[in-house]
Simulated scan of single mutants.
Amino acid sequence: MLNTITLIGRLTRDPELRYTQNGVAVTQFTLAVDRPFTDQNGNKKTDFIDIITWRGLAETCAEHLNKGRLVAVVGRLEIETYETQDGQRRRSARVVAEQVRFLDSKKNGDNNNDIDPASIGSEVSFDPDEIPF
């Protein structure tokens, strides 16, 4: 079986860095990804995709990314099912990132886009009970 997704898009907001009760870093952000076609009126549609990163990768993303930055994300799709307060079953989707590549430079003029993957600890195994939200 294979569950791999690759996205290129812009952050819609600054990443939110949190830590689990066990001290594991977790960051969330949303990517705006344009669809490769237009509608009947010539307008592009955009998907807003939730991304989550863990450990060293989470800390690196929180430190170096901000709203508007262009990134490539490689990871896996995760679908969760939950029940609302009124008893309705809902599903939500997000991408658990294993790699994040910075595709543009920071707006402050820093042109260093090369982050050594070995230095950011992109290991993504975790205990779901550690998620603080």
Rank of each mutant, 00 (worst) to 15 (best):
T84R: 09
L57Y: 02
D114A: 12
G68K: 11
L2S: 10
F102H: 12
R10V: 04
R10E: 00
A62S: 15
P36Y: 06
A25S: 11
R94D: 03
G87A: 04
A72L: 11
F48Q: 01
Q85S: 15
R55S: 08
D39C: 04
T53W: 03
R94L: 12
R101C: 09
T60K: 08
N43K: 14
I5H: 05
Q88R: 13
I5V: 15
T4V: 12
V124M: 10
S92F: 11
F37H: 09
L2Y: 14
G109N: 07
I79L: 11
L77M: 14
S105R: 12
N108Y: 07
V100I: 14
F102L: 15
T30P: 04
G42W: 01
R90Q: 13
E59S: 14
G109A: 06
D104S: 15
E16A: 07
P36A: 09
V74Y: 03
A25T: 08
A25M: 04
Q21H: 12
I5P: 02
T53F: 00
T4P: 00
T20G: 02
R10S: 00
K106W: 00
P36K: 12
C61Y: 00
G42L: 05
N43Q: 13
Q99L: 12
H64G: 05
R18A: 11
F37T: 06
G56R: 06
K45I: 09
K45G: 13
L11M: 03
T30M: 08
E80C: 10
E59D: 11
P128I: 12
P15R: 05
G56D: 10
D129M: 11
D129T: 12
I49H: 02
Q21S: 15
F102P: 03
I52M: 14
V71N: 00
L77Q: 13
R69M: 13
D116W: 07
I131C: 05
G68N: 09
N66G: 10
A97H: 02
P117M: 08
A93K: 07
T4L: 11
D39P: 04
T38K: 15
S92N: 14
I120G: 02
M1G: 15
V74D: 09
W54T: 01
P117L: 08
Y19M: 10
N108F: 09
P117W: 05
G75D: 10
V124P: 00
T46L: 01
L11H: 03
N113Q: 12
E83K: 14
N41K: 14
T53L: 06
I51Y: 01
E63L: 14
D86G: 08
